[in-house]
Nucleic acid binder design. Structure first.
Lengths: 325, 325
DNA sequence: TTGTATGCGTTATCAG
DNA sequence: CTGATAACGCATACAA
């Protein structure tokens, strides 16, 4: 494949002039520009971007770290990221890590290796301190609430959001409230769990460990959870479920069992997914798309040097009242 | 940041030796290797991959072209792709194109520009002939049935799959069958539409254009479609709906209206999504995850030169009987 | 407005 | 086993 040198030779100009044309620099006479463009056309030339990346030290690529892409939560954030990346003419490298720390570190290494200009960590198994070790190599941003770290973040306050959900249930007269969670050790999961336990304590209600369930990730898990609860001697009258799709699985199973919602069991979901909308699920919207979009915009500012200090951007959650409570 | 030259100087060896250590080449004496490794550690050195990409002409990056990531269909294929990419130590660049041809061309340009080693086109607005113009720059693979093209493909026969769905409905006694589609002009959409029209013709049934609907993409669209059909004078007794989530929206709306499924209206979905499983939706499974995984594996073989001719790999669809027919 | 010369950081080549 | 040197293809400081 032809290179810039050959274009220069054939067009009868210097490589510098070719480079100028390629990068739309001023100070190139119209006839030389035309000659270069024609030669480029004629030889079907195209730049080797790796050389450009090497010399400029930039790649216009941002990596995204998440465990699985085929979950509504992640793919909606990704959509927001991708939309903004498209606008900014950046590329996203999707790093589906399956929560394996080794793979997550791999991505951070890419930052060191100059393969990418920045990293968005949507969800990770790494400790914040480990992430912080890489901040020197380029901008990093997480979509979790990690406190005042050396890397940026865009987040919603899950503690307050959960608290609002619990308050809402309490206001509706519920005093027996259960809780369904996906991961047990996740950064956000832990925050939500704390919110739940704190709430019970403040209310002076006992903690029923059997009303708390971890590992509820799929629709089927939601259905199974309902059966588990029904088998208990004493059971909650309301549930807070992290993940609308899990709540949906539970609700549909409840219908099959001719359980009425909310009369027999009230449910609040989390994330505001389409399936919840369809089922009339009361839920808490976390602005996932906006989170992705904002994350990219903030990271871009840092890549472009317009912002040098870590930024911590809070997004507002919103309780969406429907008919499941 | 330190470079290979500095490592060589400090370790007291040549850059070649450092490079050999970096790439685990044999023929390096243990003591020199140790010296290099220690210096690397000491200087916190890491490779500039852009230089590696430039000289090797490879990047271990594959681009994925799709319109939106936040649709079950696409994100499941992406999951399959990502899983295999992880295994092969390749990276995926997600190019969410919103079906804009300009953006899709951009990605193919990346192949010319040596930024990526290959392209997977999951769904695209480009004509196959346009894609073919880029096959000289590196391996390209689509997830659509484009016939014997100069690029590879992994696909399911939507024509046959739809035909099987229609046969199934007919076997159940339905003679008034409607059809819901997402895009009107998409490559797969056109194939399915042909299958539908051909089927009616073979059966000798008239085509009711008002039983055909395009632009049904969301759950809400499904619900709206039901209302549209109910307002007709004569309406179908069964529906074939491309996309389980759309079918789900319709089914849940039917429940609200106290319409019985399948007695009042039979429904077959497409894609086998979790929501369909939950609702007892009879559907056609298209092996989306497997499609992504297979796509990556095939493309990788071509990148590695183990396969030089375009490959066309057919995946089997499967009708999943549940209770909506 | 144009061109020359240099450097980006690595791997490949080839001679020892 | 080791090393000197030539690529890879481009952008840019500097000189003209």
């Amino acid at each position: 494949m032809a290179n810039i040198k050959e274009i220069a030779r054939i067009a009868g100009v210097s490589v510098t002039t070719v480079s100028r044309v390629l990068n739309n620099h001023p100070y190139v006479s119209p006839d030389k520009r035309a000659a270069v463009l024609q030669t480029i056309e004629q030889l079907n030339y195209s730049r080797n971007m790796n050389a450009v990346h090497l010399i400029t030290g930039r790649t216009r690529v941002v990596a995204v770290v998440l465990p699985f892409i085929n979950l509504f939560y992640f793919s909606l954030i990704m959509e927001g990221l991708a939309h903004e990346a498209l606008l900014a003419q950046y590329r996203l490298v999707l790093c589906q890590t399956n929560y394996e720390p080794e793979e997550e570190l791999h991505v951070l290494e890419m930052l060191r290796n100059k393969e990418i200009d920045g990293v968005v960590i949507v969800s990770s198994a790494l400790k914040p301190e480990v992430i912080e070790e890489f901040t020197g190599y380029g901008p990093i941003l997480t979509c979790q609430d990690n406190g005042p770290r050396q890397f940026s973040s865009v987040y919603v306050e899950h503690y307050a959001a959960f608290r609002e959900g619990l308050d809402y249930l309490a206001a509706k007269g519920h005093t027996a409230i259960g809780y369904c969670e996906g991961r047990q050790q996740g950064s956000s999961s832990l925050i939500r769990q704390t919110a739940y336990r704190d709430f019970l304590q403040v209310q002076g209600w006992p903690v029923h460990e059997e009303w708390i369930s971890f590992g509820c990730r799929t629709e089927e898990d939601g259905a199974a959870e309902l059966h588990r609860l029904l088998a208990l001697n004493s059971r909650p009258s309301a549930l807070l479920i992290a993940g609308d799709h899990v709540a949906a699985g539970l609700m549909l199973e409840a219908r099959k069992l001719r359980l009425r919602i909310p009369e027999d069991l009230a449910v609040i979901g989390f994330d505001n997914q389409p399936i919840g909308r369809l089922l009339g699920l009361t839920t808490i919207d976390n602005q996932l798309y906006e989170m992705g979009a904002t994350a990219f915009r903030l990271l871009l500012r840092q890549i472009q040097g317009e912002e040098t200090e870590p930024v911590h951007h809070k997004l507002e959650y919103r309780l969406i009242e429907r008919s499941s409570v």
